[in-house]
Amino acid sequence: MQLEAIDIGFGYKKNSWIFRHVHMSVSRGEIVGLVGPSGAGKTTLGKILSGYEKPSEGLVRLNGSPLPSKGYHPVQLVFQHPEKAVNPKWRMKEILHEGWNPDDELLERLGIEKDWLRRWPNELSGGELQRFCVARALGPSTQFLIADEMTTMLDSITQAQIWQVVLDMAQKRNMGILVISHEAHLLNRICSRIIDISQV
């Protein structure tokens, strides 16, 4: 049971590569950090692993088979900027329920107020929106979560709050998590191993 990248390369133009020959894997129940200098392609790799982007070469394998092309995606990505990841013309309730219906307990633990559900995305701050994006990604069919600078924009209390919920959920459901972050302290705290993108 694992998410694998096999000899992946990506570039926007022919013969100009952002990265090449990347091999890595995350097993279920494992929490792995991904680090690297800015511009090295960490976000792009995250997008490839979750099916948002097709690699220019190489394969992504989930439990040995290709990523599914329809239905609820078992690899969920949470972006750094929640403002860009929500539909501005939907109310928060519709955004939250796009993939599944989170129960009240989860919402409460993430600090999502009932009242926020009736609001539009532009009425909430980044930290508040990010809680929705996390709740949205934690559906029962999520096998792997890719957290791309998920809490970089947030204060330490909100960061600890969100991670506590995510780690708890990961343990209960045996989810694998890939944490893309620059924050060494956070990675040391939660990850069992750390991959440097410039060395794979």
């Binding site: 330490s156 209390i157 909100t158 960061q159 600890a160 709050q161 991670w163 506590q164 924050e183 302290h185 956070l186 040391n188 705290r189 939660i190």
Partner: peptide
């Protein structure tokens, strides 16, 4: 709540 301290949220 910092990860290098106790990492406990309120």
């Amino acid at each position: 709540a910092l990860p290098q301290n106790e990492f406990i949220p309120i």
